[in-house]
Simulated assay, not measured.
Amino acid sequence: MGTWSHGNFDNDTALDWLDDITGQLLDEIAEAMESPACLEADEPDADLVPCRIELLCAMAEKGMPPQWPDVETLAEWKRIYLEVWDSSIDELEPSEDYKQGRRATLVATFDRMLALAHLAQEERESEDD
């Protein structure tokens, strides 16, 4: 059946659309990771990648997890992003308070994604048993 309840996402059309949206967000993050120069602190993707992750995490926490890449890939995304950010932020001459606070937010965002992806992976593995 294409509809199973009264919720906004309780039908095939909505879930197909959600899968498209989350897939697009993940593709955009992956593309940015392939071009690390676009992750430098003054580049748009430096701001947009964490926003995309935030949206994916919010959806996952609402019970609508994306098809996360494997946890190792996500950990590599975190490493790449932070390495580029760390190597480029000082050129913008931010205050030390901003720099430390922003980095803590970035780490927390990536760690949240990793935790949610790890949980989803565990759930998939337990379903396979």
Results as ranks from 00 to 15, higher is better:
W4Q: 05
N8F: 12
N8I: 15
N11C: 07
N11P: 00
N11F: 06
D12T: 05
D12R: 13
T13H: 13
A14F: 03
L15C: 09
L15N: 10
L15S: 07
D16V: 08
W17R: 14
W17M: 13
I21V: 14
I21G: 01
T22H: 11
T22N: 03
G23F: 14
G23I: 10
L25A: 11
L26F: 01
D27W: 12
D27E: 11
D27V: 11
E28D: 06
I29S: 12
A32Y: 02
E34D: 04
A37F: 14
A37R: 09
C38S: 15
L39S: 03
E40H: 05
E40M: 08
E43R: 06
P44D: 15
P44S: 13
P44L: 11
D45N: 12
D45K: 14
C51W: 12
C51L: 15
R52G: 08
I53M: 09
I53R: 05
E54V: 07
L55T: 14
L56W: 00
L56E: 04
L56Q: 01
L56R: 01
C57F: 01
C57W: 05
C57P: 04
C57R: 00
M59C: 10
M59G: 07
A60W: 00
K62M: 12
K62A: 15
G63V: 09
M64S: 09
P65V: 01
P66W: 04
P69N: 07
D70Q: 06
V71G: 08
V71F: 01
A75K: 09
A75F: 08
A75I: 08
W77V: 00
K78M: 03
R79E: 10
R79A: 12
I80S: 08
E83D: 07
V84R: 00
V84D: 01
W85P: 02
D86Y: 02
D86K: 11
D90I: 02
D90T: 06
E91T: 05
E91A: 06
S95H: 07
D97R: 09
Y98A: 13
K99F: 02
K99R: 11
Q100A: 08
R103V: 00
L106G: 02
V107F: 04
A108I: 10
F110L: 13
F110I: 04
D111A: 11
M113C: 10
A117L: 14
A120Q: 14
R124Q: 06
R124L: 03
R124F: 08
S126D: 06
D129W: 06
